[in-house]
Design a protein around this nucleic acid. Sequence first.
DNA 1: GTCTATATTGTGATAGAC
DNA 2: GTCTATCACAATATAGAC
Lengths: 175, 175
Amino acid sequence: MPAERAALSARQQDIVRAARDLLTSEGVEALTLGRVAQALGIKPPSLYKHFGGKRELEAVLIAEGLEAHAEALRGARSLTEIAAAYRRFALANPQLYRLMTERPLPRDLLPPGLEERAAAPVIHAAGGDPDLARATWAFAHGMVQLELADRFPPGADLDAAWDTAITAFEARVRA
Amino acid sequence: MPAERAALSARQQDIVRAARDLLTSEGVEALTLGRVAQALGIKPPSLYKHFGGKRELEAVLIAEGLEAHAEALRGARSLTEIAAAYRRFALANPQLYRLMTERPLPRDLLPPGLEERAAAPVIHAAGGDPDLARATWAFAHGMVQLELADRFPPGADLDAAWDTAITAFEARVRA
DNA sequence: GTCTATATTGTGATAGAC
DNA sequence: GTCTATCACAATATAGAC
């Protein structure tokens, strides 16, 4: 059961799949209409018969990503579990994560409520405290970003950094 | 006393100033050699007499930014003060912050030791605990990124989120 | 659903004259 | 130090034929 307001046609699904594969294997920079068309063996203008433009195509991938991210966090009962799942998702889908976070969300093209649904597991694990939830989110996002951008020194013990913060946050949940 | 290995010529300084102004006023996307040249009233190829290419010019701005960021954090004695200074710097220089963080650092073009110098105040305020320092850094970076990217809901109390995390981290410093 | 042709705009970079 | 000329791409998008 897809989350999109209108189901995608078979051809649209082909295009989304090609775009997703391209994003995964070659990164955000490689996600161009030219490359997507090439992967499908067609010319770029043909894509406009199926999507309004690049933004619409990207929005489908972003929506998929938010959905998958929410799903990955759904079972988590504690901030520790949230953190582990958050990190696991981002490192397993680094390019998708970048697409989802590095630019303003195309909110006008996303299914209503999706953004909130993706945030819900974090709020729940934070015991309903929105400030603690936002702090946890920001920390996890910052860690993942810095790790993906290779900003930590070579020997850095990232597990320990995650532990340190999440332990500190968990203490706040119980408080 | 500039931090660059070789001092910049007067003309190079003109170019850097034009690039900095452009970055500040129009954003990372507007920072192109064409725009920089235009601002100086010259043609893009002329810039190559003064810099090896775009990467070199950007590296000067990034080095300046790291220097300024380090300076902004230098006086901070606690994680609370670090957090406040970090946020203040990023929100006062959002485009420079983006340039400094959104892409891999041009480490080969930065003065040696600069990256470490920029990180030192955080480590110091974390009582020398590198894990806590990295956690604090990641949190601050995540908060700033999410705030600059307009990812928080309209009513979100960001001061409270900062407070929540830093209070939790401060408790770890004393522990 | 796909094509060709085209518009428009951009982007970094080099060679060589002045 | 600046210029013209040029390269070599690349990007999104539209019009209209097939």
